[in-house]
Amino acid sequence: MDRIRLSSLPLKKSGIITEIDGSLDISDRLADMGFIEGAGVTAEFVSPFGDPAAFRIYNTVVAIRKKDCDKIFVKELPYENE
């Protein structure tokens, strides 16, 4: 499957991070929380106002803003998560 932005990852679906755009200024902080190339991430849920969104990575749930998710690219995995 082609790569998509993390912000486009549908809820309950998972992906493997393939690339993190260098212009993302919180990339270091996100790396500390597990967001690095090769990590598996699942889209869990979204805030009532649509932003930010919560993702599960290495069994931790982290909330990230959409504009930052736009700079993370994932390869979507075919199966659903519940």
């Binding site: 993302l24 200024d25 919180i26 902080r29 996100l30 929380m33 930010p52 919560a54 931790t60 749930v61 982290v62 909330a63 990230i64 803003r65 930052d68």
Partner: peptide, 12 residues
Amino acid sequence: GASSGFALELPP
């Protein structure tokens, strides 16, 4: 100035 990024852990 620029705002910092937002990355917040939601614990169980």
